[in-house]
Amino acid sequence: MSGNGNAAATAEENSPKMRVIRVGTRKSQLARIQTDSVVATLKASYPGLQFEIIAMSTTGDKILDTALSKIGEKSLFTKELEHALEKNEVDLVVHSLKDLPTVLPPGFTIGAICKRENPHDAVVFHPKFVGKTLETLPEKSVVGTSSLRRAAQLQRKFPHLEFRSIRGNLNTRLRKLDEQQEFSAIILATAGLQRMGWHNRVGQILHPEECMYAVGQGALGVEVRAKDQDILDLVGVLHDPETLLRCIAERAFLRHLEGGCSVPVAVHTAMKDGQLYLTGGVWSLDGSDSIQETMQATIHVPAQHEDGPEDDPQLVGITARNIPRGPQLAAQNLGISLANLLLSKGAKNILDVARQLNDAH
């Protein structure tokens, strides 16, 4: 009898209710805020589980004197976190989706994509230029951005401005803007500013005609071990179906173009009346040469937790077992079709030249 009692006690200790789920994140304040929001949602869904947040620095956090596009290494903000995932030191990792490459290392998958916040870019102005827009900034004003995508589009749109690289986390960039006289304004992701509670610093939100956004911008991705079915089931509740389908289309477009950090590629997606609209573009580094096109596809946005595919093969690095396969494939095909259209119009040449120029500098 006593033996059975011990077995029952052991089973209770090993039951999922007692389990601590370890969540990996970057150390920056924004990353911690984003991770806290994901953990809060998981806690609400699984009140019996405990969650421990483990923060670590990544290569991208450490190399702050070089433009991201020049470092010449993929997975700048993800490699150390993936290493911890691989060694079973954490069970899942919360990322900004735009930091996750469209091809993940073997053994990993994006197990959830959370509801997207505003994906557009924002302009934050130096205190002396508050009330201005990019259009009304004085001639030769210097605007800071760490992104080739932003610089290429904005140089084309605002030729009277000069664009220079600015690195560091959000706090560091804002301090550089406010305390030094080098920059009249800087460009940042609206979602990051909003998550930090800095709505009052948003001086201008850039519309798609001015600057399309990065693939996955404004959404959070939760990376897990691809074979860890328990954790895949656990994080599945975080999937937002519309965000998922938009981001599958965007990531398929980028992957098929073979774009990345070192080339200016941008997108804009919208879901309306059962249609998914995808606009994508590529630019030369100075913005003088560009190709942009829009395509659409009829896609039914499923309700969360309709029964999805059981075999769960990944699409552009994403596993969404609780979302039907048909809409996911339709979104992926839309991204591939748009990429093929741009490639047929000469996108590869623009991107190759951009890559060579970026590598040469």
Rank of each mutant, 00 (worst) to 15 (best):
V130N: 13
T269A: 09
P309E: 03
A189P: 04
E179Y: 11
R201K: 09
E209H: 10
E310S: 05
D230W: 13
L342Q: 08
P264Q: 09
K272E: 08
R251P: 06
L188G: 09
E52S: 12
D240F: 11
A320E: 11
E209V: 03
V94I: 07
G192A: 06
D61N: 04
H199L: 09
G346K: 01
A67G: 09
R225E: 08
L343D: 14
H160Q: 13
T190G: 11
C261H: 00
V94N: 04
G111N: 03
P47S: 11
L148T: 05
R195E: 04
K70Y: 09
V143L: 11
V103C: 15
T41H: 12
V267I: 05
T269K: 00
R251M: 10
R164S: 11
F77E: 01
H95G: 04
E82C: 06
K70W: 09
V316S: 09
L68Q: 06
S96G: 10
K128N: 13
L276T: 01
E210W: 15
E258S: 07
D311Q: 11
D352R: 11
R246V: 12
R201P: 04
K132C: 11
L351K: 04
T145D: 02
G131P: 06
L104Y: 10
V202L: 11
L154I: 05
L49W: 08
E135Y: 09
E135A: 13
P159Q: 10
L134C: 08
T319V: 01
I350N: 05
G192T: 04
D312L: 06
K272T: 09
L315K: 07
T294H: 15
G144E: 05
A331M: 04
V123Y: 02
E73Q: 07
R116N: 04
F129C: 07
V130R: 14
F158H: 14
A214T: 08
R173Y: 01
I323H: 07
T190C: 14
A55R: 09
L338I: 04
I113V: 00
G48L: 13
L206C: 10
D99C: 00
E89Y: 13
A152K: 08
D99V: 02
F158C: 12
A67W: 01
P101Q: 08
L343S: 06
L76V: 13
E135D: 12
I54L: 09
H256E: 15
T279Y: 12
A44S: 11
P302I: 03
G197W: 05
R325C: 05
D178E: 11
C211K: 00
L161H: 11
G335C: 07
G48T: 12
D228S: 09
A151R: 11
A191Q: 00
A191M: 02
F158Q: 10
G259H: 01
L137G: 03
G280I: 00
L245I: 12
T298G: 03
A330T: 15
V237L: 13
H268L: 08
L161Y: 11
L154D: 05
Y46R: 08
D240T: 06
F129G: 08
A270D: 12
L137W: 02
S45D: 12
D121G: 04
T133V: 09
I187L: 09
E139L: 14
Q217W: 02
E89S: 13
R175C: 11
P208L: 10
C247G: 08
A84N: 08
V265M: 04
L161G: 04
D352V: 08
H256V: 09
H120E: 14
S69Y: 09
E82H: 03
G203T: 01
R175Q: 13
K74I: 07
L137D: 03
A226Q: 13
T59F: 15
C114H: 05
L177K: 01
V130L: 06
S146R: 11
L341R: 08
N358A: 15
S146D: 05
